[in-house]
Design a protein around this nucleic acid. Sequence first.
DNA 1: CGAGACCTTGATGTCAGTCAACTAGTGTGG
DNA 2: CCACACTAGTTGACTGACATCAAGGTCTCG
Lengths: 230, 230
Amino acid sequence: MTGQVHIDSQTKRLSRVPLKASHAPHILRALDAVAAKRTYRRGEEVCNSTCISDCLYRVTSGAAKRCATFPKGRQQIVDLLLPDDIFACAPNAHHSFSIEGAATETVLTCYSRRRVETLAESDSRIAKLLSEIAFEAVCRLEAQLLILGRTTALEKIGAFLVELSDRQSGRSNSVVLPVSRYDIADYLALSVETVSRSLTGLKERGLISSIGTRSIKIIDRDALDDVTSC
Amino acid sequence: MTGQVHIDSQTKRLSRVPLKASHAPHILRALDAVAAKRTYRRGEEVCNSTCISDCLYRVTSGAAKRCATFPKGRQQIVDLLLPDDIFACAPNAHHSFSIEGAATETVLTCYSRRRVETLAESDSRIAKLLSEIAFEAVCRLEAQLLILGRTTALEKIGAFLVELSDRQSGRSNSVVLPVSRYDIADYLALSVETVSRSLTGLKERGLISSIGTRSIKIIDRDALDDVTSC
DNA sequence: CGAGACCTTGATGTCAGTCAACTAGTGTGG
DNA sequence: CCACACTAGTTGACTGACATCAAGGTCTCG
């Protein structure tokens, strides 16, 4: 399917390979002529689950977040959408979700969902594409679930950085944080303070270094993997 | 799609409706003639992500768990499969999953995945069914994510019971725990002791009562929802 | 310059993990 | 039949980690 497992012969460790082996974005891009592009600012709402959107979105640049709001106000980010991720705003019986821009500038390409679904009925490749989109969503959610399942904040932050690094550039050691610490906190179910403290903790241990507040360099990836694995 | 939102006029609260509005199990059941049934015992492995299975499973009775094992031994249950849930064992680049029987007796119906996928290419209803299966998986994962995202153990346990109640009988107030406390702990990323303590805590508050160890009655659902919502 | 969002650090209380002990049920084999 | 081992569940004592509250710092934008 999408993404493959490679065994790094040196470290005998499962190395992460970006999941972008999918050709779904490529196929969708063929429809860009009839698609609409829009730029969203941080916090600007793309859509929410009360209004059933007739759109399929592809992140072109920046980042979007799908978040659920608990009755007492706390937010939980359920999915972090990065460039080339495709998503729709499905209604959900149990919770109300909203999708917002998360980076300072987020560009989304919007495809007519009905059109794509109609195409899917005659073209099995499009149908397969829809399955693949869902499959990738499952993969992202599983990955986040495993991050949330970790016990300590350091493990969560470490795993988050590793995941982000994999999803972004694949092999490079520099990670760009597209979202604020507050969003990271909502993503990891931590408080902002703990996020901040954990990052400085990783710096003090010499595992990462920061270039500004929004860019991080992974110095000792093996040690980071050790911290991460619980 | 699957599942609908009803507003309970009395309580003005979003009431949960089972997601089983899906007709996917129904369609698949039409294939039961060419499907294989098997019974699994607790802990028995159905398949794991190293061997790519050519099967699509439907839970007929009992319960199955999809779990990931962290390097240092801890287990995280990533998906809890209850009767009429459909799942496959997809390979995952990042983690190794295994699917095991979780109830004492779990019956799975196994369909040929290749056959279903071939059917999907000619029959758009089958293709849609595959999308729907994925969509339901996304719903389950999102629900679990929101449970894991809660802060206190009481909230997690409460939300877990509510979710289980919804997925099982819909409206009845009795919840059958198909899995052990240990599995609940792995599902909620808690320790067994905390699971036990939280359950007795809910009992002491008079929100639930237990009939044996594996069956629970929800006494005060509103109060349980209050505990749950953070 | 001031306002506001974003980030960091410190002090403190609470909650959950860990270790340990105990009970109950279940199955096995002599 | 009983002794034994094993699994499942519960409860208690203790410690460590995270949330919370509070304060101060940095940056951007009007």
